[in-house]
């Protein structure tokens, strides 16, 4: 009563009198929280992976048998021998060679498939090809591994092409990993190319450009960031692919650059050693985590380079 009000005695407009009774928003908040939890899961798991890798990796380097310089420069990787050597170079080399072969296969096939589907195929053909491609993406990688070992190496490389390759070899592993990642590259690249506005194509066709010129000079440059994203995603899958290389490429850590020989990748070492009889807590066991950490760094760097690349070269069309 101390503060006199002009509206004293008369009920002024309230939120309720104007908008009606307030609704309780518990449902809204619960949904927002549930969605936040879903998004947080991947972040938490990533952090967890880094933490668990880091702990074991530090323990690995604390081991007497290991030196950081030997790890980085030594050309021998024999962690399970009685006189173990921990030079990661053969594994890194194997990974890079096989991933490189995979990308040599997957980039032209994937981008070519994407360009065909987006620019050349009639709606009917597209309807038939896209599900087939997705089917390929759904084939378990272990199947690809045995396909490489029991068909591709003997029948195609040794038989049809008459190449002098080992039963286990990096070439077959790399090529089949490449085939394996074609759907990834193609699907992301195709999305990017289809998203290029029709008005840009019309502009180019209107100037007398042929379909090839429109595709190569307009659509691909405009979709470059998406295409690069597809290639990087494919490269990450190639670097991380385990089963195919474990089965088809052999398990010989070597510094040889010849892909006709058996070679071992980082993931193949992790897979083979992890399922073997290496005692928990031993140096060999810790080496799994050290290799895993190195692999993690490699894919991280790969992703960072590609993000920079995309920022630098992408063409904004809106």
């Amino acid at each position: 009563m101390a503060t006199p009000s002009i509206a004293s005695g008369v009920a002024g407009p309230t939120a309720e009198s104007v908008f009606g009774p307030a609704r309780r928003r518990i449902g809204e908040k619960a949904i927002a929280f549930a969605l936040f939890c879903a998004a947080a899961t991947s972040v938490v798991i990533t952090v967890g992976i880094v933490v668990s890798l880091t702990g074991e990796t530090l323990a690995f380097f604390a081991d007497d048998a290991v030196t950081a310089s030997g790890f980085l420069t030594d050309g021998q990787w024999t962690p399970l021998f009685s006189d173990p050597q921990f030079g990661i170079r053969p594994l890194v080399q194997g990974t890079l060679i096989i991933s490189g072969i995979a990308l040599i296969v997957a980039i032209p096939l994937g981008i070519g498939t994407a360009a065909f589907l987006s620019e050349y195929a009639s709606p009917r053909v597209r309807k038939a090809v896209k599900p087939t491609l997705e089917l390929l993406a759904g084939v378990p990688t272990v199947v690809f591994g045995y396909f490489a070992l029991t068909f591709f190496t003997p029948s195609v490389l040794q038989g049809f092409l008459g190449m002098d390759v080992s039963v286990f070899n990096g070439l077959a592993g790399g090529i089949i990993v490449g085939v394996l990642i074609v759907p990834t590259v193609a699907s992301v690249a195709e999305d990017a190319m289809s998203a290029v506005p029709q008005s840009l194509r019309e502009g180019a066709y209107g100037l007398g450009a042929s379909r090839r010129q429109v595709t190569v000079r307009v659509v691909v440059p405009a979709a470059l960031s998406g295409i690069t994203a597809g290639v990087v995603l494919g490269a990450s899958r190639a670097v991380g692919e385990t089963m195919v290389v474990l089965i088809a490429a052999g398990q010989v850590p070597t510094t040889s650059l010849d892909p006709r020989n058996p070679m071992e990748t980082m993931t193949a070492f992790i897979g083979a050693t992890g399922k073997g009889d290496v005692p928990t807590g031993s140096t060999g066991y810790k080496a799994i985590f050290a290799v895993g950490f190195a692999l993690f760094l490699m894919t991280l760097i790969l992703n960072m380079i590609s993000i920079r690349f995309v920022r630098r070269y992408r063409q904004v069309y809106e």
Partner: peptide, 19 residues
Amino acid sequence: VQVRKRIGMVFQKPNPFPK
């Protein structure tokens, strides 16, 4: 394609290439 070399077109919305 030959036809469009002789007959140019300008569209409703400006559509410059992202170049």
